[in-house]
Design a protein around this nucleic acid. Structure first.
Lengths: 139, 139
DNA sequence: CTGTATCCAAAATGATACTG
DNA sequence: CAGTATCATTTTGGATACAG
């Protein structure tokens, strides 16, 4: 990358904050998860219990939900509070930081709703085109 | 899902536009890809050739880039143009539809840049906390 | 240059069982 | 209720070779 320094012999620190492990990537990669956006949007609506989230987000397994929540908590985007009831009660809620992200994520959701038809139309057109090509190839 | 129609014998269309395969999900899932956002942002800057993208997006393999581009093309977010030169030249560019999404995605990137420090601080705090708990457990 | 096909290793996930 | 641990399976990804 860049210039100068022909790097005489060894390439010293292979990983710098720049290039691959750029900060933006770290966050983008976190968002690159099927469930993160859904969870964030859910919790932006209000606090939720574990199984409440599980039921509210169709298709997520207990294991994956658990893992994802833990990551989001580590990132400071959500907070986990456990109440010493019996059986234990756990409530997840969004943090101020998480809320700012949720707003951006919601813009994504709004885009999806607004343009889903265009996307599906494009898919149909593409698939038809591919089908036509396949036909020509066999002809 | 839903109600009415006890479905005497066979469960007709198991997948409705609602619930799990909701339109928003389809798009959100597409975004849930390590590379999609990076590609979109790149192409929003201007048209790029295949290997140009490959080099510009560190860490992406030829195979994955190829797959991802094909999906984005199918979704109508980017366009692929091949020029019959020798060897062949291929140029990818963003569509108007893709551009509207790219703008939203860029908001995400801006969020990442703006809050990466807060996220990393949260991670450090969380990890320290976990470390402390582990120590107590062994003590 | 721009891919596709194949093989293989690595990572993610679901199901299940079990704990506090 | 809210998880964790483990195992089998599926999915995904990288490396390589090769084609138009």
């Amino acid at each position: 990358m860049s210039l100068g320094h022909p790097a005489e012999t060894a390439p010293p620190p292979p990983y710098s904050v720049y290039s691959e492990s750029c900060p933006t990537r770290l966050v983008l990669d976190r968002l690159a998860d099927k469930w993160v956006t859904l969870i964030l949007v859910r919790l932006a609506e209000g606090p939720r219990r574990f199984n409440e989230l599980r039921r509210g987000i169709e298709g997520v397994s207990q294991k994956v939900l658990s893992q994802t929540l833990k990551r989001l908590e580590r990132d400071g985007l959500i907070v986990r509070r456990a109440f010493p009831t019996v059986p234990v009660t756990v409530e997840y809620s969004i943090t101020p930081l998480g809320r700012t992200l949720a707003e951006t994520v919601q813009a994504l959701a709004r885009w999806a709703e607004a343009h889903i038809e265009a996307v599906m139309a494009a898919q149909a057109a593409y698939d038809a085109q591919i089908g036509a090509q396949a036909s020509r190839a066999t002809t």
